[in-house]
């Protein structure tokens, strides 16, 4: 079957089997490898992307179901060489270590802040309950989302390349 999606602002098409999951369409057919597969039970959130603006676990959606939709992945969050404010906050607060959960975590956070721009700590924790991280103990991830909320997600992007130093 033929599917056509808008992926990070570009129209993309592929010939797919009916059983193909959206996460595999994105990773294997469109070669966008930021979203990861961390489980086989839709539990971990490593595969989270925005589908028509809402964060979803892309392993819970069939590629054919996403036909005609718009998908945003970590690769498409900010222009080349820049970090999206939420991504910048993850860096600022050291909300990532091995990075495996990170693209999903960032997309889930972007989705969370869209629906609740000023969450409490508890709301952040509840909002990210479906995204697992083995490295950070969640502390700095929660801080990153709160920092991003404070800065406002519409604040100017932070340059990706400057290794900020802060005493």
């Amino acid at each position: 079957m033929q599917v056509t999606l808008t992926v990070n602002g570009q129209e993309r098409s592929a010939e797919v089997e009916p059983r193909l999951l959206l996460v595999h369409l994105i990773r294997d057919d469109f070669a966008l490898k930021a979203a990861n597969v961390g489980c086989d039970t839709s539990s971990c959130g490593a595969c989270t992307v925005l589908l028509d603006g809402e964060s979803v676990k892309s392993c819970t959606v069939l590629a054919v179901q996403a036909d005609g939709s718009s998908v945003q992945t970590a690769e498409g969050l900010a222009p080349e060489g820049q970090l999206h404010p939420v991504a910048a906050a993850f860096r600022q607060e050291h909300g990532l270590q091995c990075g495996f959960c990170t693209p999903g975590m960032v997309m889930a956070s972007v989705g969370l802040l869209k629906t609740n721009p000023n969450p409490t700590e508890q709301e952040v924790r509840e909002g990210l309950e479906g995204n697992f991280c083995r490295c950070t103990g969640y502390h700095n991830i929660v801080q990153a989302v709160l920092t991003a909320a404070k800065a406002g997600v519409d604040s100017p992007s932070v340059s990706a390349l400057h290794p900020g130093v802060q005493a």
């Binding site: 970590a74 690769e75 991504a87 860096r91 990075g99 990170t102 390349l161 130093v165």
Partner: peptide, 16 residues
């Protein structure tokens, strides 16, 4: 001093 990670931008955009 508290130095942000140089490895982060890649992880936060194209992913590891």
């Amino acid at each position: 001093t508290r130095v942000l990670r140089t490895e982060d931008p890649a992880f936060l955009t194209s992913g590891g």
